[in-house]
């Protein structure tokens, strides 16, 4: 996967809690056997009418957010189904960073396996980002090494993530290749069980 170290980009605010992966990518698009091309189906039922035209009341369709690469949302983002098609769709659409007060466990993991950086920030900080991005074209910077989010105008937030996920994201490692260096340990475990 592509490493991610620093990212600067436009914020798209989606002020809802408990956004489940069925909303991120509805089931009718899970039938494909490829990893690519899911971006056009992202938030499909929220973005499009039955006839395929864009819904004007869904903010991702607002031109103001064209080219957004940082999604900021409410708590428990990515709950529900384990479908990795959800991070694939977000990534294919152009999102590289997702910020929320909390994430569902499987979704969080799935992001880090695909070079998407999930960032947990306090509800207060998240709300601040959402408010600013709702009222203006708002760009922020993320530095994974320093574990910081800044906007160059005084906003600064630090975030935590497990050391292992940080290294995987910074280096873009092939996790299976890393694990296979421990092949002997796996074989030993198998021999003794």
């Amino acid at each position: 996967m592509e490493p991610i170290r620093k990212h600067e980009g436009l914020v798209y605010p989606l002020n809802r809690a408990n956004i489940d992966t069925d909303q991120i990518i509805p089931k009718q698009f899970l039938k494909r056997i490829e990893r690519q091309g899911f971006g056009k189906f992202l938030f499909y039922n929220w973005r499009f009418n039955e006839d395929g035209t864009e819904k004007s009341d869904f903010t991702l369709n607002d031109k103001k957010y064209n080219g957004a690469s940082i999604l900021v949302a409410g708590e428990n983002f990515g709950c529900g189904s384990s479908r990795e098609h959800a991070p694939w769709a977000l990534q294919d659409y152009g999102f590289k960073v997702i910020i929320a007060p909390s994430f569902a466990d499987i979704f969080y993991n799935n992001c880090t396996k695909n070079g998407i950086l999930p960032i947990r920030l306090s509800e207060q900080k998240t709300e601040k980002l959402i408010q600013t991005a709702e009222s203006s074209k708002y760009r922020i910077s993320v530095d994974l090494q320093k574990q910081q989010v800044t906007d160059g105008q005084g906003f600064l937030a630090e975030f935590d993530l497990p050391a292992y996920q940080k290294q995987m994201l910074l280096n873009g490692w092939d996790e299976i290749a890393v694990t296979l260096t421990l092949e002997q340990a796996i074989a030993d475990y198998e021999a003794s069980h």
Partner: peptide, 17 residues
């Protein structure tokens, strides 16, 4: 439950981090 990348990892190594 696991994602597809983890499915691949388990298929290849029978383990997960």
């Amino acid at each position: 439950g696991i994602g597809t990348s983890e499915v691949e990892h388990v298929l290849a190594t029978q383990t997960l981090w």
